[in-house]
Every structure is written in structure tokens, then in C-alpha cells.
Amino acid sequence: MTMVRAQMAEQLSMGKREHMEVAFVVGESYEVKVRNHRVVVDQPSGLGGQDTAPTPTELFVASLATCVAFYAGRYLTRHGLSRDGLSVSVEYQMATDRPARVAAVRLTVYAPADLPAERRAALSAVVSHCTVHNSLIQAPSVAIDVV
């Protein structure tokens, strides 16, 4: 076992393991099984897909945006504030060089209108530490095995 694999095995044994399965459906679409849920991904018709679902990259960016929204909502609830009007807008840009990747993401959190001004800085601090954002800042080790 290589050093990297040994380190990954150790990291996986330290925390709760989660599991998903991805299976080919048709064309360029795949189904992701997450617990008792199903999520489908596809590609736009210009890239050979049927455009029946978001792309994996869109779901990647969406996971960051929804994580930020979740953390914002929890903050508001913890402080007895309404979540009404809470939303997150996200724009992203793909890199123009190799490797293919998301190069930039800008999230805008629209706080409820009744959020007190003195709570905005704390809300900003909380949402910038959501699990997905933390995972981007301190990237996980990734291993891909082909069997």
C-alpha cells in the first residue's frame, strides 16, 4: 500500500464514513444514490447529453450555495430570527486553462429584511465556515481506483 493510500485509509477510519453509488443511466446521464434519495446528472445537449438534469459541476457549485444557505438559516433560527426572504445567489466561472475546473465562485447571501445590522458580520462569519466551503479551503485527499 502506498503512503498516500495508507494516509487516506487512516483519515477514513478517523471519522464517520459516508457512502454513495453512481450508476450509468443512458447517454450522458448518471444516477447518484445517496441514502434513500436519487439524484440524476446529465450534460447539456451541446455536450452530448439530453439536458435532463444539472451537470456534476453545477451540482458541485450548488452544494456550496446550499451549504451556505443552510448555515445562514441555522444562524437565523438560533437567534430567533425569521428565515423568510433568505436566499443565496451564486455565479461561477470555469477556468480557461487546464486542468478543467471551476476557477471562481461568488456567492451573495440575501438576508431577511428584518436582520438587525449588528448581526450581519456574525452571519457572514458563520456562512463562510460551512462544511463545503471548509472542504474547498482545506481540500480532502482524493483517490480514484479503477478496478
Results as ranks from 00 to 15, higher is better:
residue 1 M to W: 08
residue 2 T to G: 14
residue 4 V to D: 11
residue 4 V to P: 04
residue 5 R to P: 00
residue 5 R to V: 11
residue 6 A to S: 12
residue 7 Q to M: 15
residue 7 Q to N: 12
residue 10 E to F: 15
residue 11 Q to A: 11
residue 11 Q to D: 10
residue 13 S to H: 06
residue 15 G to W: 05
residue 17 R to Y: 04
residue 18 E to I: 10
residue 22 V to C: 14
residue 22 V to E: 08
residue 23 A to H: 10
residue 25 V to Q: 14
residue 26 V to G: 05
residue 26 V to M: 11
residue 27 G to P: 01
residue 29 S to P: 00
residue 30 Y to F: 15
residue 31 E to P: 00
residue 32 V to Q: 06
residue 33 K to L: 07
residue 34 V to K: 13
residue 34 V to S: 12
residue 34 V to F: 15
residue 35 R to F: 13
residue 35 R to P: 01
residue 36 N to A: 15
residue 37 H to T: 04
residue 38 R to S: 13
residue 39 V to A: 05
residue 40 V to Y: 15
residue 40 V to H: 09
residue 41 V to K: 00
residue 44 P to A: 13
residue 44 P to F: 06
residue 47 L to G: 05
residue 47 L to H: 07
residue 48 G to T: 11
residue 50 Q to S: 09
residue 55 T to V: 03
residue 56 P to E: 05
residue 56 P to H: 10
residue 58 E to M: 07
residue 59 L to C: 06
residue 59 L to R: 02
residue 61 V to T: 01
residue 62 A to M: 10
residue 62 A to Q: 01
residue 63 S to M: 08
residue 63 S to H: 03
residue 63 S to F: 08
residue 64 L to R: 00
residue 64 L to A: 08
residue 67 C to K: 05
residue 67 C to E: 09
residue 68 V to P: 00
residue 68 V to C: 05
residue 68 V to G: 02
residue 68 V to N: 03
residue 71 Y to G: 04
residue 71 Y to C: 01
residue 71 Y to R: 00
residue 74 R to L: 11
residue 74 R to T: 10
residue 76 L to Q: 10
residue 77 T to Y: 14
residue 78 R to I: 02
residue 80 G to M: 06
residue 81 L to E: 04
residue 81 L to R: 14
residue 81 L to T: 01
residue 82 S to G: 07
residue 85 G to E: 12
residue 86 L to R: 10
residue 86 L to Y: 09
residue 86 L to M: 03
residue 87 S to Q: 14
residue 87 S to K: 12
residue 87 S to M: 10
residue 88 V to T: 04
residue 88 V to N: 02
residue 88 V to M: 10
residue 89 S to H: 14
residue 92 Y to I: 00
residue 95 A to E: 08
residue 95 A to K: 04
residue 96 T to P: 04
residue 97 D to G: 10
residue 98 R to C: 01
residue 98 R to K: 02
residue 98 R to T: 07
residue 102 V to T: 13
residue 102 V to G: 02
residue 102 V to R: 03
residue 103 A to C: 06
residue 103 A to G: 11
residue 104 A to P: 01
residue 106 R to W: 09
residue 106 R to V: 07
residue 106 R to I: 03
residue 107 L to S: 02
residue 108 T to A: 11
residue 109 V to W: 07
residue 109 V to S: 03
residue 113 A to L: 08
residue 113 A to P: 01
residue 113 A to G: 06
residue 115 L to Q: 07
residue 115 L to C: 05
residue 115 L to R: 05
residue 116 P to H: 09
residue 116 P to A: 11
residue 116 P to G: 12
residue 117 A to K: 13
residue 119 R to Y: 13
residue 120 R to F: 11
residue 121 A to N: 07
residue 122 A to H: 12
residue 122 A to M: 15
residue 123 L to K: 00
residue 123 L to V: 03
residue 123 L to D: 02
residue 128 S to I: 02
residue 129 H to I: 02
residue 129 H to N: 14
residue 130 C to M: 15
residue 131 T to E: 15
residue 131 T to C: 06
residue 133 H to A: 08
residue 133 H to R: 06
residue 133 H to V: 09
residue 135 S to H: 06
residue 135 S to R: 09
residue 135 S to C: 03
residue 136 L to K: 03
residue 137 I to P: 01
residue 138 Q to I: 03
residue 140 P to V: 07
residue 140 P to Q: 08
